[in-house]
C-alpha cells in the first residue's frame, strides 16, 4: 500500500499496513488482557497519574466557582437551613430516645427469654404495670394474675436475679413484694463458701443479719438462693455483698448487700412456680392382726384392690408425666 508519490528512497519506517496490524493486534491484546484477566490495572494507574495534572487543571475552575458561590450564600438561606436542621435534630433526638428505650427493653427481654428457656418451672412472663403507690413498701403490680395460674408465694425473677415474691393475686394482676421491702426475707447461701444466711430487706435495700463477726464473708461475694425453704428455687442470684462492717462492740457483723435484679428498673419479669417438695412419705400402715380370717379378708381385699390399684396406677402413670417436670 505505497503512496504513489512517496519517494521510495526515503526510509519512512514500517509501512502503514504493518503499523496498523501491529497496533491493532496490540490493542486487541490489551482489550483481552484488561477485560478477561484484569492485567492492565498497573498500567491504568500509571497513566492516570500522568493524567492527574490535566484532571486537576480541568476541575480547578469548576471547584473554584463552586467555592465562590458557596461563599456568597445568602443570609436568609443560611437561616432557613439552620431552622430546618434544628427541627430535624429535635425530631431525631426524640426518635433516638424512643430507640434507646426500645433497645433497653429488648436486652431485658432477651435476658429473660434466655432464663425462661433454661428453666422448666416458669409459670408466666409478665410486664410490670406500675409500682405501688405506697411510699413505705416496695411493691410492683404485674399484668398477670390468677388467669395465668399465679399463686401467692411464687418467686419472681428478672434477667439478672431474684426480684421478689408474689404476695397478693387478683384475677388479672398480681402484687410482687420486692426483696428490698421491709418484711421480705430470702434464705440465701454465700456462693463461695456455701454458708447459709438470711437476707433481710429493710426498705430500700437488703442486708445479711446475724452473721457472726468472724464469718468468712467479704466484699463482692455472690449470694444465691439456697433452696432449702420450699419457696425459692435454688441457685438464683440475689445480691452481691457490698460492705462488711465488723464492729468489735457488736455481736454480729453488718453486711450491706446490693440486689442483682433491677429492683426499681426492670419492666419484664418472670414468675416461676414454687419449688416442688419431694412427695411426703405415705403414712405408715396400721399393723394388721395376724389371724387367718382377717388374713383371708385382707387377701381378698388386696385382690380386689389390686385390680382397682392397677386401674388407678395406670391413670396415675398417665397423669404423672404432666405433673412430673414440676
Amino acid at each position: 500500500m505505497d503512496f504513489a508519490n512517496t519517494p521510495s528512497f526515503f526510509r519512512q519506517g514500517p509501512r502503514p499496513l504493518v503499523r496498523l496490524i501491529s497496533c491493532a493486534t496490540l490493542s486487541v491484546a490489551l482489550l483481552v488482557a484488561d477485560s478477561r484477566y484484569g492485567l492492565m490495572e498497573p498500567a491504568r494507574e500509571a497513566l492516570s497519574v500522568v493524567l492527574y495534572p490535566l484532571q486537576w487543571a480541568v476541575n480547578a475552575p469548576v471547584s473554584g466557582v463552586r467555592d465562590l458561590s458557596s461563599f456568597f450564600t445568602t443570609q436568609s438561606e443560611l437561616q432557613q437551613e439552620n431552622a430546618k436542621l434544628r427541627t430535624a435534630a429535635l425530631s431525631n433526638a426524640a426518635q433516638l430516645g424512643r430507640l434507646a428505650t426500645v433497645e433497653r427493653e429488648l436486652t431485658e427481654l432477651k435476658a429473660l427469654a434466655q432464663i425462661a428457656s433454661s428453666r422448666t418451672d416458669v409459670a408466666a412472663q409478665a410486664e410490670v404495670l406500675y409500682t405501688g403507690r405506697d411510699a413505705f413498701t416496695y411493691k410492683l403490680i404485674i399484668d398477670r394474675g390468677t388467669n395465668a395460674g399465679l399463686k401467692g408465694g411464687m418467686p419472681v425473677l428478672d434477667g439478672h436475679g431474684l426480684l421478689g415474691q408474689i404476695t397478693r393475686v387478683q384475677p388479672l394482676t398480681a402484687e410482687v413484694t420486692l426483696v428490698v421491702d421491709k418484711n421480705q426475707m430470702v434464705p440465701v447461701m454465700i456462693e463461695r463458701t456455701g454458708q447459709r444466711a438470711i437476707l433481710y430487706g429493710y426498705g430500700g435495700g437488703v442486708e445479711l443479719r446475724y452473721m457472726p463477726i468472724h464469718a468468712d464473708i467479704k466484699e463482692g461475694d455472690r449470694l444465691v438462693t439456697s433452696g432449702i425453704d420450699s419457696v425459692f428455687p435454688p441457685g438464683v442470684p440475689v445480691a452481691q455483698v457490698g460492705k462488711v462492717d465488723r464492729n468489735a462492740g457488736a455481736a454480729f457483723a453488718r453486711v450491706a448487700c446490693i440486689p442483682y435484679a433491677g429492683v426499681q428498673s426492670s419492666r419484664y419479669v418472670l414468675v416461676v412456680s414454687e419449688k416442688s417438695m419431694p412427695p411426703a412419705p405415705a403414712p405408715a400402715q396400721p399393723v394388721v392382726p395376724l389371724d387367718a380370717k382377717a388374713a383371708k379378708a385382707a387377701a381378698k381385699a388386696a385382690k380386689k384392690g389390686e385390680g382397682k390399684d392397677a386401674k388407678t396406677k395406670s391413670t396415675a402413670k398417665a397423669a404423672t408425666p404432666a405433673s412430673g417436670p414440676r
Binding site: P16, L17, R19, L20, C23, A24, L26, S27, V28, A29, L30, L31, A33, D34, S35, M40, A43, R44, L47, S48, V50, L51
Partner: peptide
C-alpha cells in the same frame, strides 16, 4: 490515554483510532 481518561476498557479507543487512522 483516552481509554484511561474515559475509564473505558483498556484498548478500545486505541483499536478504533488505529484503524480509522489507517
Amino acid at each position: 490515554i483516552a481509554d484511561v481518561a474515559t475509564a473505558g476498557l483498556f484498548g478500545q479507543h486505541a483499536l478504533a483510532y488505529t484503524i480509522t487512522a489507517y
